[in-house]
Each structure stands twice: as structure tokens, then as C-alpha cells.
């Protein structure tokens, strides 16, 4: 049977569409010209300029503080939530599931404005702490979903096996459950970390004076700053992201080839 070529052509077109803007951006970060319209030779001047911008370093520091604390807290809360959702099948868990699921679909501007109003209403000082609270609120859901997916193809007879061999609940949690779920929890944590680093809209609403994160810094640079500098910053961020994805991919691939052996 001859297959239609439309799917192939669409796939190629979409991939070009995906990567063309990114490539143009990377290439232009090495352009000596201030303007993206003309090529005036290869240069690293924008990268050098970037390292002298103190605001960027400050924003990066803030971003990492928020991202790390968000990751840790949402990993703990999300894992426990996933366990509850998987282990029990009650009305409470149906409500719980809706509560976990809804933040995933609500547009971020709605989360942003509602959290802003909440913080204003209870009189919390806006800043890194409110950003952390906001980020954790949506990251918990992502971690819970990733871990829940992992739990669903988890073979629960190993828990009975551990019990059969004399382990109590505490031992099972530490010696069987946690090591086995570790890849899922780590994947959820990584997702939370990237989402936190990348979030602009919600952060924009709940940030306070001085609490500039990297996306907010980039936003104000796009609005007011010089494009070549953003090109350089974007390229660095893209490379870091590629490296992270590549590492994750590499690690999971190793695991898979072992399984086939």
C-alpha cells in the first residue's frame, strides 16, 4: 500500500518552522552589527557585554533561588499527592484530583491575577517569597502528574513481596518505593525547575520591588533594551536547555537499552 506523503511533508515543514527562528537568533548573536538586518562579521562582543551587565547576574541569582526552593517543595508535595491519588479511590481523591488537575489548564494570567489579589488582600509583601509560593502552586500539579504516570505502570507486587519478606511500611517506603520512583520524581522535579525558570506571566503579577527574575529582565530588555544583547543571552539559555535535555535523554536511553538486554 502506498502511503500518503502529506504527513511527511507536514512534519518537515513544521520542524523547519520550529527551528528556523531559533537558528536565526543564534546566528545573530554572533553578529557584530547592532541591527539584525545586516551582517557585519563574526563577533563575541555581545557576549562580553552580557557578562558585565550586573542586572542580569542579579536576576539570575533570584531566578535560581526561586527555582530551587520551588523544585524541592513541589517535589515533596507532588510526590505525596500522587501517592494519595494512586493509592486511594475515594470521593476525597476525586476532589483532590480536580484540585491538582485544574491549575494545569487554567491560563497563567488567571493564576497570576488571582494570586496577586490574594496577596494584596492578606497584605503579604510582594517579592521572591510570593513568587516562590506562586510557582510552587502550579509546579505541584506537574510533579504530581508525572509521578502519578510513573505509579500507574508501577508493579505493586514488589511492595507485597517486600512485606512478605518482613519489611514494615517505613522500610518499604525507603528501600523499595522511593528508589523505584526516584526517576519519576526527578523527572517531575526537572520539569518544575524548568517551568519555574521560564515563567514570566505569573511572576510578573506577583513580583515586588527588587525581585527581578531572568524572564522579567528579558522582558524589559525586549521592551527597551538592545536586541543583540538578548540574542546572546537567549543563545546561552538555549544551549543550557539543550544540554539539560540531552543529559536527561541520555540517562533514560541508557536505562532503556539495559532493559532490552
Amino acid at each position: 500500500m502506498k502511503r500518503s506523503r502529506i504527513p511527511l511533508y507536514t512534519t518537515i515543514a513544521v520542524l523547519v518552522f520550529f527551528y528556523l527562528p531559533i537558528f536565526v537568533l543564534i546566528i545573530h548573536s554572533f553578529n557584530a552589527s547592532r541591527f539584525s538586518g545586516s551582517w557585519e562579521g563574526f563577533s563575541l562582543r555581545w557576549y562580553i557585554r552580557l557578562f558585565t551587565e550586573r542586572e542580569i547576574w542579579y536576576a539570575l541569582r533570584n531566578t535560581l533561588i526561586v527555582a530551587f526552593s520551588t523544585t524541592v517543595v513541589s517535589m515533596v508535595l507532588g510526590t505525596i499527592a500522587a501517592f494519595a491519588l494512586h493509592r486511594f479511590n475515594t470521593r476525597l481523591q476525586r476532589v483532590h484530583y480536580t484540585l491538582i488537575y485544574t491549575p494545569l489548564v487554567v491560563p497563567d494570567i488567571l493564576m497570576g491575577i488571582s494570586l496577586l489579589l490574594f496577596f494584596v488582600a492578606i497584605g503579604v509583601q510582594l517579592g521572591l517569597f510570593t513568587i516562590f509560593l506562586a510557582h510552587t502552586s502550579f509546579c505541584v500539579s506537574y510533579v504530581a502528574m508525572v509521578v502519578l504516570a510513573r505509579l500507574q505502570d508501577f508493579d505493586f507486587s514488589v511492595i507485597e513481596a517486600a512485606q512478605d519478606l518482613g519489611a514494615n511500611w517505613w522500610t518499604i517506603a525507603w528501600r523499595v518505593l522511593l528508589p523505584l520512583l526516584a526517576p519519576g520524581i526527578a523527572a517531575g522535579g526537572l520539569l518544575a525547575f524548568t517551568l519555574s525558570i521560564d515563567d514570566f506571566v505569573i511572576t510578573f503579577f506577583v513580583t515586588g520591588p527588587g525581585a527581578t527574575t531572568l524572564p522579567i529582565q528579558i522582558y524589559s530588555m525586549i521592551k527597551h533594551g538592545s536586541p543583540p544583547l538578548i540574542n546572546a543571552l537567549s543563545t546561552i539559555l538555549l544551549v543550557v536547555t539543550f544540554l539539560i535535555i540531552w543529559t536527561v535523554q541520555h540517562l533514560t536511553e541508557d536505562e532503556r537499552t539495559h532493559e532490552n538486554a
Binding site: 507486587s157 514488589v158 507485597e160 513481596a161 523499595v176 528508589p179 523505584l180
Partner: peptide
Amino acid sequence: FQNYALFPH
């Protein structure tokens, strides 16, 4: 156990 339930880790 039927599927042995060995600890995969």
C-alpha cells in the same frame, strides 16, 4: 509471585 516481583533497582 506470579511475575516474581523482583526489586528492579
